[in-house]
Design a protein around this nucleic acid. Structure first.
Lengths: 107, 107
DNA sequence: TCCCAATATCTTGTCAGCCGATATATTATC
DNA sequence: GATAATATATCGGCTGACAAGATATTGGGA
């Protein structure tokens, strides 16, 4: 799973959101570190929808602007959970090795 | 940082290794989950060397086969540490949200 | 002896995907 | 009337992952 896809799924965990709203939520939940590019966003959404990790939820017209909402599917939630576990494991193995190195490297 | 690059750096934390040895070490430290492709490996090494996150260490000829060793630079160790922190943060934010969802979603 | 597998390097070509740029449309502000 | 924010979508360039193949040595099995 690519990193933009990971963030899109994370942004959809609590409630359905529309494209622009996802981009703002991702920026918020990463403390401004990740700014999803608009050209990236819709491509990612298409791919996630094709894989059925997200699904179209509803469409609204608010103040004349179309909002197309997406929600996380059960399959998407499982995929996100698995990816989170994988990332945590990767981070842990690197951190452990670095710690051993600074501790004097008992190779 | 791309995932293959992350694994290459991790494999070099404890000691310098040559290309083939890196591939075997990555497979080992990921419990067989990550099998670095040979075409990926050398491209990644070139890019990491250009960025000075790894550096050529020495060359050996063992049993007629050339071994070109690479070592992690201080800059590489710092980059790996930062990436590990970032991955851990990403994994944590996703896991927390998923936990809240299963707990009943107090949105 | 000959072929294959393992070890070891590197190159080339294809495909996926990120992202900048652009287009379109509405509302609000200046 | 121009600009910014909100909101959608597409296109093209570039980077990077990876399959495949080239090259070379050692050792084992048919």
């Amino acid at each position: 799973m690519t990193e933009p896809a990971f963030f899109v799924l994370t942004a959809l965990v609590d409630e359905p959101r529309h494209g622009y709203g996802i981009a703002r939520e991702v920026e918020k939940l990463s403390d401004g570190r990740v700014q999803l590019k608009i050209g990236t966003l819709y491509g990612v959404l298409d791919r996630l929808a094709a894989d059925e990790l997200v699904a179209p939820d509803r469409e609204e017209v608010q103040q004349g602007r179309l909002r197309r909402y997406y929600r996380l599917t059960d399959s998407g939630a499982r995929a996100l959970e698995a990816e989170a576990v994988r990332l945590a494991a990767n981070a842990r193995s690197a951190s452990e090795r670095l710690r051993a190195r600074h501790a004097g490297g008992m190779a």
